[in-house]
Structures are given as structure tokens and as C-alpha cells.
Write a protein that binds this DNA or RNA. Structure first.
Length: 340
DNA sequence: TACATTTGACCTCA
DNA sequence: TGAGGTCAAATGTA
């Protein structure tokens, strides 16, 4: 094939991708708007988190799914291999300095580098630290209230802290490049309580229901495989307002798969229930017995969020800060909150 | 043998 | 410059 033909084909595909990206953007924005409105109206959030989806959100989810898959297919062609890069840089430009994506010394290969060629002792510690990745913190009486498989990769004594902090990453990182990590630390004031900080979203293949359990319940935003991005972005932009909105919006506590308890935030402690059937419980008992609770009859979780910007490792991020700010400025009834 | 954990070394960032 | 986060060799376990 001659180069002109290739160029024409490449341009056409690029145009198609551009159109799809626009569609994806629009659908994501629509979903954010609807989610935001729903959260403002205290809709039946139990239905959302329990997996009985709101039909509108479900529909949008399907649209996003279609866009995502189509773009992914096109993205896999050599001609448009730079699409995600373009999108990524576009997003970064709009989100400011946010070097959250880890970069390995070998050019970004996220797989387990230990077995790779050319990795010598000099490479140890050579990485770009994740900065301002999407994080949220959970206080729990057990560290396994999610069904992901975690692999411990480090432990560190933290200054002025009685207990060491343990570092876990998703077991599927080597095989699927999942960037999710979590940090677990015992609370000083209550050694039976663990502060678990989740960093980044899982991109590995697990059920949405499972993921929903470990993602922050973002006041009505459904967290499924493809709109995690939307939720993440919304999360980041709404986070600044959440503190002030906490008094108005009931928080949610997942008390079991498919079960949700609504909680008045004046009564955090009364939500105590069992998270039965965690498939990783036994695993974690084995891998990190010193932090497992002897009495796991009581495990309540208080979900609260770090207001850190999210930009980590989402291949398709289409909404920039200005768009979202104006979006929420237009629709957010909570005036006078901190500017983003 | 394969996979997970431990732990000291090393790097980044505030 | 030190604290915190990650790497990767050594070690443990099934």
C-alpha cells in the first residue's frame, strides 16, 4: 500500500475517533449531570449501589460502553495508536500539572519488571511516585472489606506512628497492569481499627458489584467499569464541596454485597454489620495475620474522602476542569463553597 | 516450582 | 534533607 493511501486512511480513522470521543464526552457529561441531580434529590441510592441500576444511568452506561469499546478497537490499530496519548495529553493540559501516571524506567512498562531483561540492581527504586492519584480512605475493623486480591509489596515504619504502614498492590498488576494500590495502617487510638487508603482504580477484570464495594460511594454516582472515570472526575470536583455538603447528604455504608444502609452522618457508629463472604478474608489472614482482627463480628466502615485530584491511569479522560467547573457551577445549588 | 511476603535499598517529593 | 513510597533480592510456603 502506498503512503498516501495510508495517510488518508489514518486521517479518516482519526476523524472517526474524534467523533467518538466527542460522543463519549457528551455522554459522560450527561451522566454526571444526572448523577449530580439525583444526589441532590436524595434519590433511592440504595438501588444504585445494590446493583439495581437506574434505567437512565444504565442506558448511559451502555452508551459509554459502546463508545469505549469502539474507541478501544480503533485505538488498537497502529494508525491511531496515538489516540489515547492525544487524549491523555489533552486531559493533562486541562487538569494542570498532574503527573500521576507511574512511569517505569523501561519506558512505562507496568508489568513486573523483576523478570524482565536489563533490570539490574541499579534500577531499584527507579520509578515515578504516584502523586495526587485518586484516593479515598476507609476506616475498618478488617482490612479485607473488598474482594480484590492484594499483594503486599512493602511495609514502612511511619514517623510518629506506633504502627507500621503496609503497602498493597493489586495482584493483577503484572498480568493486567492494574494500578490499584492500598495502604493499611492501624489506628493509634484504636489498634483494632485500620485506616485503609485506596489509591487508584482497579482496571483488572472483576465484577462491577465488587468494584462498587471498594469505590467510594459518590453520592449517587454509579461506579461501573466504564464510568468510573466519570465518577472519578465528579468525585474530584465535588470533593471540595463534600465537606460542606456532608451535613445535608446522607452517607452510605455498604454492609454486604448488594446491601446498603443509609446513614445519618450524626450516627456513624450505629452502622455496624458484617461483611460476610469476603473471598479474600482467608487469604489475607494468611498473608498478613498480624493485622487481622480476632473479632470480626463488628466491622463498621466510615467512608470519607481525600480531596485529591484524580488523573491517574484512565486511558480515556475527556472532561477538563473548566468544563466540569462550569457544569457544577451551573447545576450545583450549594453556593459559596470553596473554589476548585 | 510458583507465588507471596519480608525487608533493606533506593528514589521522589515536600 | 528526611519522610514516605516502591523496588527487588532473599526467604517462606504450599
Amino acid at each position: 500500500m502506498d503512503s498516501d493511501s495510508n495517510n488518508t486512511k489514518s486521517i479518516k480513522i482519526k476523524n472517526v475517533v474524534d467523533q467518538l470521543v466527542e460522543g463519549y464526552k457528551s455522554a459522560t457529561q450527561l451522566q454526571l449531570l444526572l448523577s449530580h441531580q439525583q444526589s441532590n434529590h436524595h434519590i433511592d441510592q440504595t438501588r444504585i449501589v445494590s446493583g439495581d441500576p437506574d434505567p437512565v444511568n444504565e442506558l448511559i452506561g451502555k452508551i459509554l460502553d459502546s463508545f469505549y469499546k469502539t474507541i478501544s478497537v480503533l485505538d488498537s490499530f497502529d494508525q491511531v495508536a496515538n489516540v489515547s496519548v492525544v487524549l491523555e495529553s489533552s486531559r493533562n493540559a486541562s487538569c494542570g500539572d498532574d503527573s500521576a501516571t507511574p512511569v517505569s524506567c523501561n519506558g512505562g512498562d507496568s508489568s513486573d519488571s523483576r523478570k524482565g531483561p536489563g533490570v539490574g540492581k541499579g534500577k531499584r527504586g527507579c520509578y515515578t511516585r504516584k502523586k495526587r492519584s485518586h484516593t479515598w480512605t476507609v476506616e475498618a475493623r478488617r482490612i479485607d472489606d473488598d474482594k480484590y486480591a492484594w499483594r503486599k509489596y512493602g511495609q514502612k515504619q511511619i514517623l510518629n506512628s506506633k504502627f507500621p504502614r503496609s503497602y498493597f498492590r493489586c495482584t493483577h498488576k503484572p498480568t493486567q497492569g492494574c494500578q490499584a494500590t492500598k495502604q493499611v495502617q492501624k489506628q493509634e487510638h484504636d489498634p483494632n481499627l485500620f485506616q485503609i487508603t485506596y489509591i487508584g482504580h482497579h482496571t483488572c477484570n472483576v465484577s462491577d458489584a465488587t468494584q462498587a464495594k471498594t469505590e467510594p460511594l459518590d453520592h449517587g454516582i454509579v461506579m461501573d467499569t466504564y464510568n468510573t472515570l466519570a465518577a472519578t472526575i465528579a468525585h474530584d470536583h465535588v470533593d471540595a464541596n463534600i465537606q460542606e455538603r456532608e451535613n445535608d447528604i446522607s452517607s452510605l455504608i455498604v454492609v454486604g454485597e448488594g446491601m446498603v444502609k443509609e446513614e445519618d452522618n450524626n450516627n456513624y457508629d450505629h452502622n455496624k454489620d458484617c461483611c460476610e463472604g469476603s473471598s479474600t478474608y482467608s487469604d489475607l489472614s494468611l498473608v498478613w495475620p498480624d493485622v487481622m482482627m480476632s473479632d470480626d463480628r463488628q466491622h463498621h466502615q466510615n467512608h470519607y474522602y481525600h480531596g485529591e485530584a484524580s488523573t491517574t491511569s484512565h486511558q480515556f479522560s475527556f472532561i477538563d476542569n473548566d468544563q466540569l467547573s462550569s457544569l457544577f457551577d451551573s447545576y450545583c445549588p450549594y453556593e459559596g463553597t470553596s473554589s476548585i
